[in-house]
Every structure is written in structure tokens, then in C-alpha cells.
Amino acid sequence: MSELLKLNNIETYIGQYHILQGVSVEVKKGEVTVLLGRNGAGKTTTLRTIMGLNPASKGSVVYKGEEIQALPTYTIAQKGIGYVPEDQGIFAGLTVEENMKVAIQKENEETNKRLDYILNLFPDLQKFWKKPGGLLSGGQKQMLSIARAYVNDNELLLIDEPSKGLAPIVVEKVMESILQMKDQTTIVLVEQNFMMASTIGDCFYIIDDGRTVSNGTMKQLKEDEEMKRKYLGIA
């Protein structure tokens, strides 16, 4: 499979803090790449750096052969990268419909098809179409956030901890939907829930103290008890 995104030894500061100190990741087209690591390791900052929200001070972010690390966030998004942030980023005062309208970049037949697809995948969104986003449950907000990222013809989705704070049954639903989307798009997933990560993921990168310390296929990680214990705290 061809390479869609490549992070070359990126370093990122947030204020005076040197958060990423050398993260290198290769994302292959059609795969789900999972970023794993303890809290505060730099996983979320890695996604934010790809989006240009916390721009890299060193290294490069190459998307479809083009360096994008110096571009503004909106240009990066327009290039076909959808982003589902950790806090979901829902516009609380806007209805579900309005949240989707803000997200849609081009209104055409293709977008309508994708909207129909995503509403079939998340029927709750259709049910609460006229309801303010702020009144949705945690799971529904997560679905709305994923739907907004998916509705445009994005080749790459960056999804940050979709299971965070959700009930197990909702996590299952979100996991199923990501599995379905996996056939149509490439995904970089940050996830603490190892069960979810190992079910969805094709390959993994472990980030520790702002550096990538290991990578491989998800199958390899499942079998490597030492690695799981050392970096993920899984006994």
C-alpha cells in the first residue's frame, strides 16, 4: 500500500514546553494507524501538529507527497484531512443540522451521498437533527464529531480518543462505525482503550515522552507482552 502521510522527526512546542521531541510516523493508504502511549505522551499533540493547530518547529509533515507543516489549519483541512478532536469540538449552540452545514465544504451529489451514509450509520443524528449539539449525550456528540469529519471527501481522518468517557455499549457502537468507515478512508486513531485499538488498528506506533519508541503491526503488539506492560501499562 502507498504512503499517504509521513511525519519526519517532528518537534513541537506548546508555549515553553517541548512536547514532541522526535515523532516519526508513516501512514499507509487504507490502513488504520493507531497511536498508543500513556497520558501526556504526546499523542494528541501529534494529531494537532498534523492539523497545524500546534505547528511543528522542526521536522516535516508530508501529506500525499507535499510538505504541509507550514500551512494554516484550514488549508490542511481543505486538502482532505478530517479531524475529530478529543473534546469532540461540537458547536453546542448550533443544531445537529447546523453543525453538519458548517462542516460541509462543497454541496454536491457526492456530499449528499456521504451525508445519507453517515446518517444511516448514526441514526441518532437524524433523530436529533434539530436539537442543539450541546444537548446531545456524550456518545451522540462523538458520532456528530465523526460525521462532520467524514461528510467531506476526506482521504484521511484523524480521530482522537473516540471512546473517552463513553459507556461500553456506546464505545462498541462507535467502534463498529469506525470499522465500517475503514473500508473507505484512511484513519489515524489515538486510543487508550487497547481492546478498541487492537480491534480496529492495522498497525501501531507507541509514543513515549514525545518520541516514537516503537512501531509495527497490531498483530505483533498483541503478542508482545513486554511492550504492552512497559509502555501501555497493560499486564
Partner: peptide
């Protein structure tokens, strides 16, 4: 939307 979360507006292109 921008009044509520301008960072997200940018991340939506």
C-alpha cells in the same frame, strides 16, 4: 460556530 469554537471552524476547512 466561530464564536463558540474558532479552532474547530478552522479544522473544518
Amino acid at each position: 460556530a466561530g464564536v463558540m469554537n474558532k479552532e474547530m471552524v478552522q479544522a473544518l476547512g
